[in-house]
Amino acid sequence: MDELRRLFESEGAREYLGEPVTQAEHMLQAAALAERAGAPDALVAAALLHDVGHFHGVLTGADLMAGTDNRHSDTGADWLAQWFGPEVCEPVRLHVAAKRYLCAVEPGYHDRLSEASKYTLGVQGGPMPAEEAQRFAAHPYAADAVALRRWDEQAKDPSAVVPAFARYQDLLQRLIRQSLSD
């Protein structure tokens, strides 16, 4: 819990890859949107933690914006798996794929992306080809990843008022204990 809190207070306080919010504000907004939508606790946690992969691994968010895919969804999911089960980690792992999927199957979705998100889409492989989109749609966590992706895109409002990280600590602690006991 201390490590997660530290990420929000340190690396999370930095600029969010060309968006008008910090990385922490972005993730907190995504969690608040998930909570308002009545998402289960694990999906609220996934929304809160979906971009932690920008802080870990050899490549960072700055590398992504420079044109190298940092694979932050995989890095983040793998790092979170030391504490959380697949109901948190798999939507995190799939949230970039969900953007690629939605751009392939939902008319107008691409046009609603922020300029930074359109740019990273190209770095991350662009819209999925039809066969890949079919495989993605069949994944057991595809629906959760798509929901997370929609909150991700909405979570870039510089005037949004959302709870602080502390608001989610009990929820995260419950999920950590539950994963450890499974």
Rank of each mutant, 00 (worst) to 15 (best):
C103T: 07
M27G: 01
P163L: 10
V92F: 02
G12H: 06
E3M: 08
V58L: 12
F84G: 00
R174V: 08
E19I: 00
V88H: 03
E3F: 09
P107S: 12
V162P: 02
R150H: 09
F8A: 05
A145W: 10
P140Q: 09
D144F: 06
A160R: 04
D182Y: 03
A145Y: 10
Q82I: 11
Q23C: 13
T75V: 15
A46G: 08
P158K: 07
V21N: 04
H26Y: 08
R177Q: 13
L43R: 05
C103P: 04
P86H: 10
D152L: 02
D41L: 09
R36F: 01
A42Y: 12
L171S: 09
E153I: 14
V21G: 04
Q29P: 04
E19F: 03
F84H: 05
G57M: 03
C89F: 05
G67L: 01
E87N: 09
A77H: 06
A30G: 13
M1A: 13
A31L: 01
F165V: 10
V92H: 06
A98H: 01
M128C: 08
A77T: 06
G85P: 00
V146S: 03
L28H: 09
P140F: 03
A166D: 15
L102C: 11
V21Y: 06
V123T: 03
D170Q: 12
E25D: 13
M128K: 09
G76A: 04
Q169H: 12
A66W: 01
A137Y: 05
D78V: 10
L7N: 13
E153A: 14
R177Y: 07
V146E: 12
Y101C: 06
L148Q: 02
D170R: 10
H110Y: 14
V44M: 10
R71T: 09
H56G: 00
A145H: 08
K118T: 07
